[in-house]
């Protein structure tokens, strides 16, 4: 009887949840996120497998067509133009040994739309040898993009 009475006793239906520690955690997260908050209008998205070099430059990127050269691919913005093998463009895709044909036609199409545009963002893997990078630079020059912006990670 005593046991039954104890069972039937009304249990409290509400309880106080202690949210102090949760608030502390959120405050720390908020401070961290405010520090990394970016106000840039344009965001450079690194492609898979590409490691950018670091630089002490403090210039933020501005919107422009972006060429990405990694060990195994050549991209223009989000479009994969070529599959490469160790930064090497297949010989049948080269004109005069220096101009990358698919990149040239893609850049010329952009140039036809925006004739006054001369800027291009170049995202290159840090281990890329200069002759391979020069093919991309030469192609950009032929297409009429003379101002190149080299994308790097900020830091020493």
């Amino acid at each position: 009887m005593d046991r039954r009475a104890r069972f039937n006793r009304k249990q409290p239906t509400t309880f106080m949840l202690n949210i102090n520690s949760m608030t502390d955690m959120f405050t720390i997260m908020l401070v961290f996120l405010l520090q990394t908050y970016s106000t840039n209008t344009f965001e450079v998205k690194p492609i898979m497998g590409l490691q950018m070099p670091t630089s002490v430059s403090d210039t933020s990127p501005e919107e422009a067509p972006m060429i990405s050269l990694s060990k195994d691919s050549l991209h223009l913005d989000d479009k994969n133009l070529l599959n490469l093998k160790d930064f090497t463009v297949p010989p049948d895709q080269l004109d005069q040994g220096e101009i990358i044909k698919p990149l040239l036609s893609a850049l010329q199409a952009i140039k036809q739309e925006k004739k006054e545009k001369e800027d291009i963002i170049l995202q290159v893997d840090k281990d890329c040898p200069y002759p391979k990078m020069r093919q991309v630079l030469s192609t950009a020059t032929v297409a009429g993009f003379y101002k190149v912006r080299l994308a790097t990670i900020s830091g020493n």
């Binding site: 949760m22 405050t27 996120l33 630089s55 933020s60 190149v148 900020s154």
Partner: peptide
Amino acid sequence: LAVMVKLIPVLIVSSAFIPIVIIQSELPA
């Protein structure tokens, strides 16, 4: 807490965890 819960997703979306900068250079025109 309610304000923070709303703020944090907004900040996560607009945060740049790897800050990318550019070096300006010119090609011979």
